[in-house]
Design a protein around this nucleic acid. Structure first.
Lengths: 138, 138
DNA sequence: ACGTCATTGCAACATTGTTGCAAAATATTT
DNA sequence: AAATATTTTGCAACAATGTTGCAATGACGT
């Protein structure tokens, strides 16, 4: 899959800066999802902690990445597929979190079944989070 | 539904203390899920913050409550149904989080569809989190 | 190359969660 | 019911995580 960092940033009217380029690159290279802490560790002292927070925030707002719900308190982020629009993304994700190694996988090929909600409830997003043991830890 | 606080605590070999009784009572009274902050606000200065953390931890370990994954970073807890065993609970939950008022509902009557995982992946728990507008906010 | 605007880094702070230990409350034994 | 053993609590101190204001820096359009 071809993914141009510069193109993505330009398309979203974001200035092209070192931090944005490198953080976006991390997401592209990473097969799974990343937490703030992962990015902080990988980048060492290159960027300020605040910059990482703000970059992630911006990416979420622009629909470049999205947050993944987890049962523990850690927030994780993953690249959105191209269809994702500004602000909210409409394709529903299946995520797998390994209890053993903590890796978060986006299972894009698994379809999320639609849910029958009680009267008066309207869904805008559905997240299906499966946890267990992953391929490598099994 | 009859739910005896004392019985529940005894069954789990926990000492019967004020904090445990009152926190468990909050869960029974609350239709939705509670975050640590909710409990802290509702109980005022009655208990130490640390006590609340430890009580919630204990309840999760004993299978009295369970955590709910959320896309924002807040951890929420809800009562487990009686079938839940020690440590892990085996019935899969559907949760609905209202974007407007933040209330978290346990939709027990909606069944979680089983997911086809790629080879090598083994699921122990499946969480389906739907967000949108709830009954009251629609 | 210059001015404008967006972004960064620093500092300070707020919130959230954790740990050790003595005091207090609960449970158990006699 | 009193004494002992065990569990739980509250305090203090700390660690981690996230936020905000502001001056300095860097990116972008002309």
């Amino acid at each position: 899959m071809l993914y141009s960092i510069i193109e993505t940033l330009k398309k979203n009217q974001l200035s092209i800066t070192d931090s944005r380029k490198k953080i976006l690159e991390m997401f592209i290279r990473s097969k799974g999802a990343l937490a703030h802490a992962d990015i902080e560790h990988q980048s060492g002292t290159e960027f300020d902690r605040v910059t990482i927070y703000r970059t992630l925030q911006t990416f979420v707002e622009k629909g470049i990445i999205h947050t993944i719900p987890t049962a523990d308190n850690s927030v994780r982020y993953a690249l959105c597929k191209d269809e994702c629009g500004q602000g909210q993304h409409h394709d529903d994700h299946v995520h797998f979190i390994c209890d053993e190694c903590g890796t978060t996988y986006c299972l894009d090929h698994v379809t999320v079944p639609s849910v029958d909600l009680p009267a008066g409830f309207k869904a805008t997003q559905t997240d299906l989070v499966v946890s267990g043991k992953c391929m490598r830890c099994n």
